[in-house]
Simulated assay, not measured.
Amino acid sequence: MNAGNSGSLSARDHRKVAQFIEQAVGIQLPEHKRSLIEVRLRKRLKETRYTNVSDYIDYALSEEGAVTEQPRLIDAITTNKTAFFREPAHFQVLSHWIIEQQEAGQSGFKLWSAACSTGEEPYTLAMVMAELQGQSGSLNFDVLATDISETVLQKAAGATYSAESIEPIPLPLRENYLLRSLKQTPPLYRVTKELRERVRFGRFNLISGSYPSKPGFDAIFCRNVMIYFSADDRARVIRQLHAALKPGGLLFIGHSESIGPVHPGFETVAPTVYRRSDGG
């Protein structure tokens, strides 16, 4: 361990971290991201006994650091930007589609938020579904919410948000599904127990995780994460998500993303919304 100057992130160390992150979670970190990586690693250094960036990287990527430090390194590097009702047109498409499926006789729905970050997306899904349930008592739903980061999953399970972060939620939904803490200044808001119970959180790696062996989801939201993947990784994830969807089910991706050349098993429903169109 070097207790001297913490130094800057060398090209060699950048390559080591970038290679590890791409292999572990599929995210590409080209040269122009080097300064961003350094800033994020320095935050991690403050929480460890290391004062030198290079020494910390050697430890984190060693066999000794594999179990405890590598998940924290991934947490430090990966971006977790999200918001309630982000890309709101998606939720309108989902609502109309759910109503159509109900009219055709379907009553149960399984949804997957596949890069859920701190929980805003899956709780938005749960609010949308709960509102539809209120219009039709026969509707049942489950939301699976997964992410690579244990840190954000813990925050998501806590379901507590600032006044600023809940601003995108329409007022009637805030009144129905959020509780204000009277002990906090500024105030904090927590998702109601009834809604929290409809969302199940778990850790999942989109690159190396074991996807469902049978199609089981009616809708999958995998937004604003594949933009960081290589073309090969993105194509592989798309194939896996396709297989996890029920025939006729919907895949939602971010507006800055693309599934690449049109997948033969998908048809476009709306911008960045795709329906599994094959029967197999």
Results as ranks from 00 to 15, higher is better:
276 R>E: 11
220 I>R: 12
243 A>D: 14
231 A>M: 06
219 A>Y: 09
95 S>V: 03
95 S>L: 00
208 S>L: 05
179 L>N: 05
198 R>I: 00
67 V>P: 01
62 S>K: 08
164 E>C: 00
147 D>V: 12
128 V>G: 00
233 D>I: 09
114 A>Y: 12
72 R>N: 13
252 F>S: 13
54 S>D: 11
46 K>V: 04
229 F>T: 10
235 A>S: 15
225 V>F: 04
153 L>Y: 11
106 Q>H: 14
48 T>S: 15
274 Y>Q: 07
196 R>K: 15
268 T>G: 07
133 Q>R: 11
95 S>W: 04
146 T>I: 08
220 I>E: 01
147 D>W: 10
65 G>W: 11
78 T>S: 12
54 S>T: 15
164 E>L: 05
266 F>D: 13
201 F>I: 03
176 N>C: 02
199 V>L: 01
137 G>M: 00
169 I>L: 02
225 V>M: 12
226 M>H: 02
109 F>S: 00
172 P>Y: 10
199 V>W: 01
248 G>M: 12
19 Q>N: 13
112 W>M: 03
92 Q>C: 06
150 E>Y: 06
243 A>V: 02
239 R>I: 01
6 S>L: 08
165 S>G: 01
130 A>N: 00
204 F>I: 07
279 G>Q: 10
217 F>I: 04
26 G>S: 04
90 H>A: 02
278 D>L: 12
233 D>N: 15
140 N>C: 07
72 R>L: 15
242 H>V: 00
197 E>H: 05
109 F>I: 11
13 D>N: 15
231 A>V: 15
14 H>R: 07
46 K>H: 12
58 D>G: 10
34 R>T: 03
272 T>Y: 03
162 S>K: 00
192 T>C: 10
180 R>C: 11
147 D>S: 06
133 Q>W: 02
11 A>L: 12
255 H>M: 10
201 F>E: 09
62 S>V: 08
212 P>E: 14
88 P>F: 01
119 G>P: 12
166 I>Y: 06
159 A>W: 02
227 I>F: 03
150 E>T: 08
60 A>I: 07
87 E>S: 08
205 N>K: 07
42 R>Y: 05
181 S>W: 05
25 V>R: 05
76 A>I: 04
270 A>D: 15
128 V>A: 00
132 L>Q: 14
226 M>E: 03
47 E>I: 09
101 Q>D: 01
98 I>L: 11
24 A>R: 15
19 Q>F: 05
173 L>A: 01
277 S>Q: 05
61 L>N: 08
72 R>M: 13
152 V>Y: 02
